[in-house]
């Protein structure tokens, strides 16, 4: 039997060779790990969050370990979209692995402008919108916490580009489903779930928060149950593909996320401990499919979701007394 088909279609022509991606912010621009990681074997690379203008990011400390996870508050440090394209796109164009540029902004116009500058750039396979940013036009409220704002920025970006478009959901909301639906209705090709959970840690003296920015985003195994719940909820209310992220450290986590409806999985924080993990997960998923005797990993998707209510049955008519 030939190896199982691991390819995944995220829409608009973005076909990944396998469903294991590396998450934005944990893998730089794909070059930092050098020979330690075989980037050509990854399913996709989501690069560091990219903005219109260069950003120096937040004051330090920016990271700290927490039980089963870590908090980070990098503050979107990046050299700006033009520098990112000039410096890295040429390298990306030579890779088999699709590079998805993670895009952030403080206004709808910011997002649109960044995306327009990525349109048609060789080496850029898609866009992932980070909408967990304060929306200056709406008093600093995050796009991600409001269905209207999330839909608006998605629609504006959709009009501005033909690139495959993923939108990354924030878990820091009451009910994520209306937001997910609004983003899907606005023309996103796929959803990424989830971004980090907002949290704080204290300095050892307990006289102040530890991180320079006070707040940080929690990631790592600690957040996996939250991510699993959100993917479970979202994949039942949208028809577009869902890419899961949150605490993946082993194959069992990948299988869990597939079972609740994700078609692909991003590995993030775990890369810091084990940079070779994502490539190993590709091998382990291949082996798992072989062990189960299935031709495509797609058969593992959605097995834990409740059955969708189908058309009303006519059988009852026959047996009506």
């Amino acid at each position: 039997m030939s190896p199982a088909d691991l390819s995944v279609d995220l829409g608009r022509g973005l076909v990944l060779p396998n469903p294991i991606l590396v998450a934005s912010g944990t893998f730089g621009y794909g070059i930092e790990y050098g020979d330690v990681v075989e980037v050509d074997r990854l399913g996709g690379i989501c690069c560091k969050g990219t903005t219109l203008q260069p950003r120096i990011g937040n004051i330090t400390p920016r990271v700290t370990e927490t039980p089963g996870g870590m908090l980070n508050s990098i503050g979107l440090q990046n050299p700006g979209v033009d520098a990112v394209v000039a410096k890295y796109a040429g390298t990306w164009a030579g890779w088999k692995t699709p590079v998805i540029v993670n895009v952030a902004g403080e206004s709808v116009e910011d997002y649109v402008e960044v995306v327009q500058r990525l349109e048609g750039v060789s080496g850029v396979a898609g866009i992932e919108l980070n909408i967990s940013c304060p929306n200056v036009g709406r008093g600093g409220l995050q796009f991600a916490i409001d269905a209207g704002a999330a839909g608006e920025v998605t629609a504006a970006v959709r009009r501005a580009t033909d690139l495959p478009l993923l939108v990354k959901l924030s878990p820091n909301v009451g009910d994520v489903r209306p937001i997910a639906r609004a983003i899907a209705d606005a023309g996103a090709d796929a959803l990424t779930a989830i971004n980090t959970l907002s949290g704080i840690a204290l300095a050892p003296s307990r006289r102040k928060p530890l991180l320079g920015n006070i707040y940080g985003g929690l990631s790592g195994p600690a957040i996996k149950p939250v991510a699993l719940r959100i993917v479970y909820e979202v994949s039942q209310v949208v028809d577009i593909p869902v890419v899961a992220i949150g605490g993946v450290t082993e194959l069992a986590d990948v299988l869990d996320f597939l079972a609740v409806g994700a078609v692909a999985v991003q590995v993030g924080t775990a890369i810091f401990a084990d940079p070779t993990l994502p490539v190993r997960l590709v091998d382990e998923l291949t082996d798992e499919c072989e062990r189960r005797g299935i031709a495509s990993y797609a058969e593992l998707v959605g097995t834990a979701l409740p059955p969708k209510p189908g058309a009303p049955s006519s059988k009852g008519v026959e047996y009506r007394p």
Binding site: G28, E32, K48, T60, F272
Partner: peptide
């Protein structure tokens, strides 16, 4: 500095440089 990846990918371990650009302690 508190460090995440140690290879320059996560930008966690920066200090400020005199050129106004954060410098990665790890890289």
């Amino acid at each position: 500095q508190n460090m995440g990846c140690a290879v320059g990918a996560c930008l966690g371990c920066v200090i400020m440089g005199t050129n106004g650009v954060p410098q990665r302690v790890c890289r």
